[in-house]
Design a protein around this nucleic acid. Sequence first.
DNA 1: GCTTGACTTCAAGTGCACTTGAAGAACTAG
DNA 2: CTAGTTCTTCAAGTGCACTTGAAGTCAAGC
Lengths: 164, 164
Amino acid sequence: MPARRVPGPATVPGLLTVGEVAERTGVATSALRFYEERGLIHATRTAAGHRRYWRATLRRVAFILFAQRLGLSLEQIGDALARFPAGRAPTRRDWARLSALWASQIESRMAELRRLQRGLATCIGCGCLSLQRCHVLNPGDRAAALGPGPRYWLGDAPRGRSSR
Amino acid sequence: MPARRVPGPATVPGLLTVGEVAERTGVATSALRFYEERGLIHATRTAAGHRRYWRATLRRVAFILFAQRLGLSLEQIGDALARFPAGRAPTRRDWARLSALWASQIESRMAELRRLQRGLATCIGCGCLSLQRCHVLNPGDRAAALGPGPRYWLGDAPRGRSSR
DNA sequence: GCTTGACTTCAAGTGCACTTGAAGAACTAG
DNA sequence: CTAGTTCTTCAAGTGCACTTGAAGTCAAGC
């Protein structure tokens, strides 16, 4: 019955073990398993049940790391990844759409940082940080009072999931 | 024995109840109590044990909100607040020192966002996101692999507290 | 053949920043 | 005086992104 048994670790050029992926990405094996559980990455299995990753997974993990530094949650990253085929690079078109979305998020976060920077120099220093109508903490309306729960500071709030 | 009893809520102009502070700052009463437990804010007590806040506490809370949007942890914020007198505004000198520190943190976070922005347009789109030597994920050395634990993305890592 | 190390699952733990709930005391309005 | 709101403490729960540990399997080198 050992007819189509997937070969052992590291012996096949195209497939990587979880340890190899961990080493190459700097992400712990436990995290990789966690990402798989959350549907962010996928692996084939050997006959013995060991994970084997395609090389494309390295890019997928890089994508996850990138998006995390952007400030996205794993759920948001999962949504983005779901549009891409699992085993291959995204198309230019896929990429362009996502790129535009994320670029605008980076823009708004940078805008906030610039506001905070200005506030650092003037608003707080002079004691005007009043909370009532401070344009640093409350741009427009009452964005600083996003309600209870963890406060997100990229894009003000994760879309969907109304607070609490 | 009711000789120097602190008067009731809302009746004294200088002192605020926890509910009033919550309403004015947009921060939940539970969070205010939590901040007090962590030493970030302080309150006097009425004879009955109810909290009474100075008006300066409003500014202190504003300061906390501001620093949170900067991406600082409560511990870091507490360190910063510890240098300031509890009941009054910080001196210009105090402020200038902190301001310089935080400004540089904002600068480095903005620099990272610009890198990510560039990566968004080129590095990932063209498929070069390689993890090994990607200058978007690994500026200089291997900053993306900060080790296990929650990943900080302002200033790369909270100073002190070597990871784990 | 045996040891060592890499892998497996599953449950539970961690750190942060809180929130929620229970049980009760205190203030306020009518 | 009573009802309702606001406050008190304390313990436990939440969500995120994982890590740690236990108990066991699999593969490779000597």
